[in-house]
Amino acid sequence: MSGATDGRCTDEEADYAVTSAATGGESVWSETTGGAAADAATQFRAVLDAEERWLGAVSRAGDFTVWRSRVVREVMDRRSPYAMALRRAHGAGRQAEFLQSWQALIAETVQRIAPGRDTCALPTATSAASGHPESLAVAILASLHGGATLSWLAQDARSLEAALDIVLTPVLALEEPDGRGDQRSG
């Protein structure tokens, strides 16, 4: 192991305090929306409803950090429908629909906070489309899923936090006065 995130431990207490303040407290999932008892469709619906609300609350680039902290908390909470929806193997058709809806919500949010603007400075042709909101939404959702897998295996939120922080770098850079800012993260 390379000690990937050693020494970069996020202050989870602080993160969660911010999230709790923003959400008005701890979210408690009932057995009908979370836990092993709920079926996949119910969990997908619960995640999409929550995402619609929380992504809807993102009105400027910096708000994505609140969303990010909340997503990390949900994914690491075994009772949350997020954890179940990301962990369980589902029928491909239904899962594809779920992921597409989630991706569309993220893309709309990126589009809303950065209208008509590519969200990343791109030096080469390889990455020509990488700054588009649609592409960023795919990348954010991929990092969320991949990070959730790594964090679940390690039973440690840091991989998911790092993955989301890195993929959100070009979005958060919009907060900088020049609209691009310093994208260096690493």
Partner: peptide, 24 residues
């Protein structure tokens, strides 16, 4: 740059990418 941290990001993107490709 912190390469160890970036490596986490790469692996997460790759794994999530596999999953999105699989469902799509």
């Amino acid at each position: 740059i912190d390469t160890a941290r970036l490596a986490v990001g790469f692996l997460a993107s790759l794994q999530g990418g596999y999953l999105l490709a699989q469902t799509a």
